[in-house]
Structure formats: C-alpha cells, structure tokens
C-alpha cells in the first residue's frame, strides 16, 4: 500500500460519528441534570407546601425574560448553521457572535437575580434561610444548585461558541465542513432544553 493511500485515510472524516458522539455525551449531560430533577421531584413531593411558598419569592419577570433570551439564542445558533451550509460565512459569523452575546445577557440577568436573592438574605447558610422551614431550605438549595449548574453549562457553551467563532474566522469551519459548528449547536440547544424545564419548575409553581 502506498503512502498516498495511507495519507488519504487520515483525511477521511465521519461527520455522523462526530454528531453521534456528541449525542451520547448529551445523554450524559441529560442524566447529570436528571439526578437533580429526581431530587427535585422527591423533595417537591414531600414538601409541597413549602415549595409553593418559596417559589413565590422568585422573580417571574426575570425568569421569563431569560427563557426568551435562551430560546432566541437557540434560534440564532440554528440559523448560523444554515447560513454556513449555504456558504454565507459573514452571516454565520455574526449569528454566532449574537448567540454568544445572548448567552452573556442570560448570565448578566442571572447575576441580578441572584444578587437580589442574596440581598434578601436567601443564600445558603444565612440566618434568615436557616430559620425557614426545611422545605424552603431545600427549595433554595436545589434552586442554587440546579440554576448554578445550568449557568456553568451556559458558560461552557459560550466557550465552545467562542472557539467556533475562531474556527470560522480561520476558515476551519467551511461550507463543506461544518460538523464542529453542528456539534456546538447541539450542546447549546441542550442547555436550552434544560432551561425549558427549570423555568416552570422553579418560577411557575406558585
């Protein structure tokens, strides 16, 4: 076998495998949050009244705003992939940047929301929170953990998108080779899906 043939094997790529691997990884992410959803369901079941009362303290306006921000960022991400498929590099690039900025907006929103909670004294270990009934302590415990972990995933997704922006500029992602962008999109949409469930469970159960 000649060296050329050998080399041609190296450039062989399998886009389906890349996406498949990403999906498997997403299942892991799903079950990671799944564990938290299990906890949520048990504690909500055993402390229904406390959960209702605690959820009333949530800022529904900020929650809804964040939902819309994330849904729209999913839209721009999907559009960025289509634009790349059609070979419109500049359009795709701008859509990716917009997606990144939406992610940032989400986090800024979250920051204000959390600082408001902290000002009210509803932070873990605070005397105000510890004095509350145990169901409410659990509600806030889950709220900070689940939303916090989701925030970490938003940051991770933004990091991935930042890399995609770089790859697009450098011409690594092209009209014919955009599977990296697709995989990044899959991750971003998963972050969106998790928020789709977090939103009603923490903000809308009053």
């Amino acid at each position: 076998m000649s060296a050329e043939n050998q080399a041609s094997v190296h450039v062989h790529r399998d886009d389906v495998a890349t996406k498949m691997g990403m999906w498997f990884f997403l299942f892991s992410e799903l079950l990671l949050f799944g564990g938290l959803f299990l906890m949520y369901s048990v504690y909500r079941y055993t402390h229904q009244h406390d959960f209702h009362i605690a959820a009333e303290g949530m800022n529904i306006f900020l929650g809804t705003a964040n939902t819309i921000i994330l849904l729209t960022s999913s839209l721009t991400m999907a559009l960025a992939i289509t634009a790349m498929q059609k070979g419109k590099k500049i359009l795709s690039l701008s859509l990716q940047i917009i997606t990144f900025l939406f992610g940032l907006a989400f986090l800024v929103n979250k920051f204000f929301e959390w600082s408001a909670e902290f000002r009210e004294g509803n932070y873990p270990g605070s005397p105000i929170l510890t004095a509350k009934p145990s169901g409410q302590i659990l509600y806030y415990g889950l709220y900070y953990t689940m939303v916090g972990l989701h925030g970490v995933h938003v940051i991770a997704g933004m990091t991935v998108i930042a890399f995609m922006i770089r790859f697009t500029i450098k011409g690594i992602i092209t009209k014919d080779n955009y599977v990296k962008l697709e995989a990044a999109g899959l991750y971003w949409h998963l972050v969106d899906i998790i928020w789709i469930f977090l939103f009603p469970l923490f903000y809308l159960i009053t």
């Binding site: 079950l31 873990p124 302590i137 415990g141």
Partner: peptide, 27 residues
C-alpha cells in the same frame, strides 16, 4: 452522571452549606 451529580452535591453541601441531603437542613 447520576453518581457524578450526587457526589458533586455532597461537595457543594460541604463547601457552601447548601441544604440538599443533610437532615439538619431538612434533607
């Protein structure tokens, strides 16, 4: 991932005192 998150929660509980499993915090 389920044990991953469970052990992560124990870490969070230890470090930040978030009420998750500890019975004194209702867990």
């Amino acid at each position: 991932p389920i044990v991953g998150i469970t052990l992560l929660l124990v870490i969070i509980e230890r470090v930040f005192g978030v009420g998750l499993f500890d019975p004194t915090l209702g867990g």
